[in-house]
Every structure is written in structure tokens, then in C-alpha cells.
């Protein structure tokens, strides 16, 4: 499934239509629900745009990053 996720159509569904993606791959239960709810993990700014969480190995905390 992750291989298929690299296809342009599947990638669009992954971002914008997780229900369709779940239907395509027969996903159910907790996996399906978590896929749909993944947007909750990504903060948005005042305009509703996704905000990149610059989290990585050496993390941005109080301005301390790489």
C-alpha cells in the first residue's frame, strides 16, 4: 500500500480524500479512523493553512534546532 501511495492519484487521496484511499485499499477499523483523523496532528495557522512542525532529530525547542 505504501508503494501505491507514491502514485500521484493515491497521493492526492492520501492528502485530501482519505476515505477514498481507505475504500481503495480495503482499510477498516482503527487504521481507517486514524488515517482520516491524521489532520488533527498537524497544526494550522489563523488562515487554516497547515503549519510545518519542524521536528527532527535535533528539535526546535525555544529556538534551539540543528
Amino acid at each position: 500500500m505504501l508503494t501505491a501511495a507514491a502514485e500521484p492519484a493515491a497521493l492526492r487521496a492520501l492528502r485530501d480524500d482519505p476515505t477514498a484511499l481507505a475504500d481503495r485499499f480495503g482499510l477498516s477499523g482503527d487504521v481507517r479512523d486514524r488515517l482520516a483523523d491524521a489532520e488533527q496532528l498537524v497544526p494550522r495557522d489563523a488562515r487554516g493553512e497547515y503549519v510545518t512542525i519542524t521536528l527532527h532529530t535535533i528539535t526546535i525547542t525555544a529556538g534551539h534546532g540543528l
Binding site: 500500500m1 505504501l2 508503494t3 501511495a5 507514491a6 500521484p8 497521493l11 492520501l14 492528502r15 482519505p18 482499510l27 477499523g29 482503527d30 487504521v31 486514524r34 488515517l35 483523523d37 491524521a38 489532520e39 496532528l41 498537524v42 497547515y50 510545518t52 512542525i53
Partner: peptide
Amino acid sequence: SMILEMVRLHALEYPDHIREAL
């Protein structure tokens, strides 16, 4: 059960990088 959720999270945050990463 968390793996696809993780992938979608990165797809939302990094749309210009996700395909090559996958």
C-alpha cells in the same frame, strides 16, 4: 495501525517531498 497515519501526516506537511520519500 499508526503507520498510514504517520504517512498522511508527512504528506500533509511536506507535499513536495512525500513522493520521493515513499
